[in-house]
C-alpha cells in the first residue's frame, strides 16, 4: 500500500475567544488516501473547516504534525509553505474571494499566473477548465455578473486549473438544490479524483453521502467514525 496522501498526528487547535481558550480539535490522527473521495462529515461547529484549513496549509495547528504527500508542511518556512500550497493544493472555501475586477477566466487562471505562466496561456487553460465545468461561455464575465453557482464553479476552476495533488472543498453543495449539488459533485469526482491525487469534501449534506468512497465523522473536534458508509445512528 502506498503512503497516505495526508497524514495528521495529534493535531490540536485552540482559538482565543476573549479571555477563554477554546480547543476546537482534540488530537486528530488521520490518514487520507489518494485516489479516493473522502468526506468529512459533522455538525456545524464540530471543527470541519478548521481541520481542512490545517490540512491545506493555511491555518497553523496548535500542536501536532501534518504531512501532505510526505512533506511536513508546518516545518517549512513561510515562503516555502506558500510555494508548496501553490504547487500542490487547491481549495474551494465557502467564501470564494474572487477578484472583482478581472473576468472569470483570469480569476480561474490566478494559480497558473502565480506559477509564472504567461498570461495568455494561463487564460487558455483556465477557459478549458471552465468549459469542463460547463461555464465556458461565462469566461469573459466579471464575478459580479455571475450567479452564486457560477461563481462557485469559477472558484472550483481556480482550485483545479493547476492540477494540484490535493483538492479540498468546504461544503460545496450547501447553497445548491439537489440536482445542481449532484452535478457539482460529479464534476469534482471527474476532475479531482485520480491516482496519486486526494480529494476531501467537507459536508453535512446527507443527500450526497452516497458519493463518498470514505466517510470520516467529526464530533466536537474528535474523529468518531471512519468507514465507507455513514454510521447507523446518523
Amino acid at each position: 500500500m502506498s503512503a497516505p496522501a495526508i497524514c495528521t498526528r495529534a493535531v490540536t487547535r485552540d482559538f482565543q475567544a476573549g479571555q477563554q481558550t477554546i480547543t476546537v480539535l482534540h488530537g486528530i490522527d488521520l490518514d487520507v488516501k489518494a485516489g479516493e473521495m473522502t468526506f468529512l462529515v459533522g455538525e456545524s461547529g464540530s471543527g470541519k473547516t478548521t481541520l481542512i484549513s490545517i490540512m491545506c496549509g493555511i491555518l497553523w495547528p496548535t500542536q501536532g504534525e501534518v504531512k501532505v504527500f510526505g512533506t511536513d508542511i508546518y516545518d517549512l518556512s513561510d515562503d516555502e509553505l506558500v510555494e508548496f500550497r501553490l504547487n500542490n493544493i487547491g481549495f474551494i472555501f465557502q467564501q470564494y474571494n474572487l477578484i472583482p475586477s478581472i473576468d472569470a477566466a483570469s480569476n480561474a487562471a490566478v494559480p497558473l499566473m502565480a506559477q509564472g505562466m504567461d498570461r495568455e496561456e494561463a487564460r487558455m487553460r483556465a477557459v478549458a477548465m471552465l468549459e469542463k465545468l460547463n461555464i465556458g461561455d461565462q469566461a469573459a464575465k466579471l464575478p459580479n455578473q455571475l450567479s452564486g453557482g457560477q461563481q462557485q464553479r469559477v472558484a472550483i476552476a481556480r482550485a483545479l486549473v493547476h492540477e494540484p495533488r490535493l483538492v479540498v472543498c468546504d461544503e460545496p453543495t450547501a447553497a445548491l438544490d439537489a440536482s445542481s449539488g449532484r452535478r457539482v459533485m460529479d464534476l469534482l469526482r471527474e476532475v479531482a479524483v485520480a491516482e496519486n491525487r486526494a480529494c476531501i469534501i467537507v459536508t453535512h449534506d446527507n443527500r450526497i453521502f452516497d458519493l463518498a468512497d470514505r466517510i470520516l465523522v467529526l464530533e466536537d473536534g474528535v474523529v468518531t467514525h471512519d468507514g465507507t458508509e455513514m454510521p447507523e445512528d446518523h
Partner: peptide, 16 residues
C-alpha cells in the same frame, strides 16, 4: 485586503 489574503492562501508569497 481579502483578495490579497486569498492570493496569499493560493500561493503568492509576501514578497510578490
Amino acid at each position: 485586503i481579502k483578495q490579497f489574503g486569498a492570493l496569499k492562501a493560493i500561493g503568492v508569497t509576501n514578497g510578490k
